[in-house]
């Protein structure tokens, strides 16, 4: 599903070149559940952004679903993101002025899906995530857990093959965090590839496969790929 070969990412900070990723080789199969752990600055978010096609590697190749996506232009990147990738963020990133339903609908709107079909999908998602009675609430009228559920519903609305979650429980209390993790793990059961970035070992430990990063390199893998 995801194949990274000798991928590096170098940032220019002032006059200096800072390597955020150094020669990463990584294979993730469809339906894998992977966690990426490491201290802050270790490159885990950069890796996630690269996989999510929000960024491009400085060198190396990235294959997604068998196709080379290393050098896609902006429009092509956007199309792939729209179709294959879902994002869940630590800070939820809901548009404050839109209702929960419209926030979930956003990817469908951007993809140009007709209104009738959208309505049906959004209604189903609201139902699935227990948000049916919150459809017309704005984000500031929702609890933290509800907000993250809206975000997950939004991330899955286009039925992506890959779901990328960056510290999804970082802004939540423990009980709500657990609830959110259960929701994400249910998706794995539906053959969605789930990649979670976290610094919390308790969260990261739940994944079948765990990557540990330091200084832009994967130093240790525990667990193994279920299907290769």
């Amino acid at each position: 599903m995801i194949q990274l070969e000798n991928v590096s990412r170098v940032f220019a900070v002032g006059d200096q070149q800072v390597a955020a990723l150094r020669g990463i080789d990584l294979n993730i199969a469809a339906g894998d559940y992977v966690s990426i752990m490491g201290p802050s600055g270790s490159g885990k978010s950069t890796l996630l952004n690269l996989i999510g096609l929000l960024d491009r590697p400085s060198s190396g190749t990235y294959r997604l679903d068998g196709g080379n996506v290393t050098d896609l232009d902006d429009v092509q990147q956007a199309r792939v993101r729209s179709k294959k990738i879902g994002f869940v963020f630590q800070a939820f990133h809901l548009v404050p002025r839109l209702t929960a339903a419209t926030n979930i609908e956003l990817p469908l709107i951007l993809a140009g899906i007709p209104a009738a079909e959208r309505k049906a999908r959004v209604a189903q998602l609201l139902e699935n995530y227990g948000l049916a009675d919150r459809a017309d609430h704005r984000p500031d009228q929702l609890s933290g857990g509800q907000r993250q559920r809206v975000a997950i519903a939004r991330a899955t609305s286009m039925h992506p093959a890959v779901l990328l979650a960056d510290e999804p429980t970082g802004n939540l209390d423990q009980a709500t965090g657990k609830e959110v993790m259960n929701l994400l793990e249910q998706l794995v059961a539906q053959q969605v590839t789930l990649i979670i970035v976290t610094h919390d070992p308790a969260i990261g430990g739940r994944a079948q496969r765990q990557l540990h990063m330091v200084d832009g390199q994967i130093i240790n893998q525990t667990g193994s790929a279920v299907n290769t």
């Binding site: 999510g52 956007a78 993101r81 963020f89 990133h93 548009v95 990817p107 951007l110």
Partner: peptide
């Protein structure tokens, strides 16, 4: 700005 970032992550093109 962060809303714009989100839209882009959700698959919005520059033109959109």
């Amino acid at each position: 700005t962060s809303e714009i970032g989100l839209l882009r992550a959700l698959g919005a093109r520059e033109r959109q």
